[in-house]
């Protein structure tokens, strides 16, 4: 346990900036590279991850006293897999077009390290309330990363945002090509690194 308990809002922002799952923790990179070609994809997958993270966190923190320590990990896996199945079925039924575009990635949420990690390090030690906020923060952090990538790639690649024509032409088709995902994530991480370096330098100067 940390010496000072974090407030809910701190937990919330922790996930978005300081421990951003994509750019800081470098977890769940596959969708960040694979399907961040448009803002819409980012939002939808972000919502799916948010849903799974929040519900799994709440479930685990609610039943944490009843879980036998020996079967801790299988229980986590079962919980996550259940919620992933739920969101997978719901997306397939209600937004079929977008679901097709995301392909296999919705089902792959089950293998996201970030979700298990939050269950193991946070939800199984904290009550439902903070776990909920932690889950929301992490989910939104992931969504934020996906949307940021989607924005860059969609704008530069297709000249559109959310499907609306903004530029009227396509500046660099390269950016919607699948391989460009790697470059975008790499550059984005470098930007986060740069911000950290500048921030630390300023603090030292003060």
């Amino acid at each position: 346990m940390k010496a000072r308990k974090k407030t809910n809002s701190q937990l919330f922002f922790n996930g978005i900036l300081k421990e951003n799952p994509i750019f800081r923790l470098a977890l769940s990179m596959c969708p960040a590279v694979g399907i961040s070609t448009s803002v819409m994809n980012g939002i939808l997958l972000g919502v799916a991850v948010l849903f799974v993270q929040v519900f799994s966190s709440c479930t685990i923190s609610a039943i944490k006293n009843y879980i036998h320590p020996r079967i801790r990990i299988p229980t986590y896996t079962l919980t996550i897999a259940t919620w992933v199945t739920v969101i997978d079925l719901m997306l397939a039924a209600f937004v079929p077009a977008a679901y097709k575009e995301m392909g296999i990635f919705v089902k792959l949420i089950v293998a996201f390290a970030i979700i298990t990690m939050r269950l193991e390090t946070f939800a199984c030690k904290n009550p439902v309330g903070p776990s909920f906020w932690d889950g929301v923060g992490m989910g939104l952090g992931f969504t934020f990363g996906m949307v940021a990538l989607g924005l860059v790639r969609e704008l530069l690649g297709m000249g559109t945002i959310l499907g609306y024509d903004v530029l009227g032409f396509r500046p660099l088709l390269f950016f919607v090509l699948p391989a460009a995902g790697f470059f975008c994530v790499g550059l984005m991480m470098a930007v986060f690194n740069y911000m950290e370096i500048v921030y630390n330098r300023r603090r030292k100067a003060l």
Binding site: L78, A81, T82, T85, V86, L89, A93, F94, P96
Partner: peptide, 19 residues
């Protein structure tokens, strides 16, 4: 888990086919 998944499947399956 089975109850949760089963009931969600029952609900969404009809909606999916309809859509």
């Amino acid at each position: 888990a089975a109850v949760v998944m089963g009931s969600v499947f029952a609900i969404t399956d009809r909606a999916k086919k309809h859509n």
